[in-house]
């Protein structure tokens, strides 16, 4: 079972704050971490390798500094580190990012599974995993909280808002995983020290065969950010006269309807 795990280096949101004058994230001095959901994906991949054999390749697109994220993944059990780094990749949105990752998967593969975290904690788009599947014309099973392999198929339990759905697909497939799928193991010191003495396999745009340069980087990104802002949370207090309870409940329900708040049991 050969598995590719896509990871992203993100700013540690616990340490981040907004600059109120510019409405942008202050990233200076903020430590970078491996996107937590990607760690769940890596742990799932390592467990599958432990059950079925094979290897786990971890891949990221980013500047040289992203090597740190790959080394962390190596300490957590990945067999191979791949860094996609090129100035021409810079400014990519989810479409351009997923395109490059998909092309790299083709060049490095074949893989039986491609695993991603359900989303990155900085952008929260949850688009890259599904887009990789589309670029590669592979089945996609998203929000997996359980994974099992049977012969040439993969079965997952998909975590939904109110219930769970069992899904099955033919391998190879692309999966995105949720936090509840596992608790990532603690890193191994010996592997971490080995990682610090190992360089990742590095690929530039020129190293990926058949890459369409019009689909990468800022120019290949259809997303245009018009504005970023901090949502304003307004707090209003309504005091309902409770002299006649039935009337008070009626007033409460009409206020909830006006505010479009549903009380349907979840």
């Amino acid at each position: 079972m050969n598995i590719l795990v896509c990871v992203k280096q993100v700013p540690d949101t616990a340490e981040i704050h907004m600059d109120p004058s510019t409405n942008t994230l202050v990233r200076t001095g903020v430590p970078s971490i491996v996107n937590p959901f990607d760690k769940n994906a890596l742990e799932a991949a390592v467990r599958l390798r432990e059950q079925h054999g094979g290897s786990v390749t971890t891949i990221t697109m980013g500047p040289l500094q992203a090597t740190q994220a790959l080394r962390e993944c190596y300490a957590l059990g990945a067999d191979r580190m791949v860094l996609l780094t090129d100035r021409r990749f810079g400014g990519a949105d989810t479409y351009a990012t997923s395109y490059v990752l998909a092309q790299a998967a083709k060049a490095l593969g074949p893989f039986d599974l491609i695993l991603c975290g359900k989303q990155a904690i900085d952008g929260d788009t949850a688009q890259v995993g599904p887009m990789i599947a589309e670029h590669l014309h592979l089945p996609q099973l998203t929000y997996a909280c359980e994974i099992s392999i049977e012969d040439t198929t993969v079965q997952v339990v998909q975590e939904c808002d109110n219930d769970h759905i069992c899904l099955r697909a033919q391998l190879p497939a692309v999966l995105t995983v949720t936090k509840s799928i596992n608790e990532p193991r603690l890193p191994n010191v010996m592997r971490r020290l080995q990682a610090n003495r190992t360089e990742p396999d590095t690929f530039t745009a020129d190293d990926l065969p058949g890459l369409d340069f019009s689909c990468i980087g800022l120019s290949g990104s259809p997303t245009k950010v018009r504005k970023t802002f901090i949502p304003v949370h307004e707090k209003q207090t309504h005091i309902i006269d409770g002299t006649i309870p039935a009337d008070a409940v009626s007033v409460l329900f009409s206020l909830l309807d006006t505010a479009k708040i549903s009380l349907t049991a979840r």
């Binding site: 300490a75 603690l186 890193p187 971490r192 020290l193 610090n196």
Partner: peptide
């Protein structure tokens, strides 16, 4: 060194989590 920083970070992760 980078090794020392990484090891300390791992110990911190262990301590905070466990």
């Amino acid at each position: 060194s980078q090794d020392q920083k990484d090891i300390v970070a791992m110990v911190r992760e262990f301590a905070e989590r466990e």
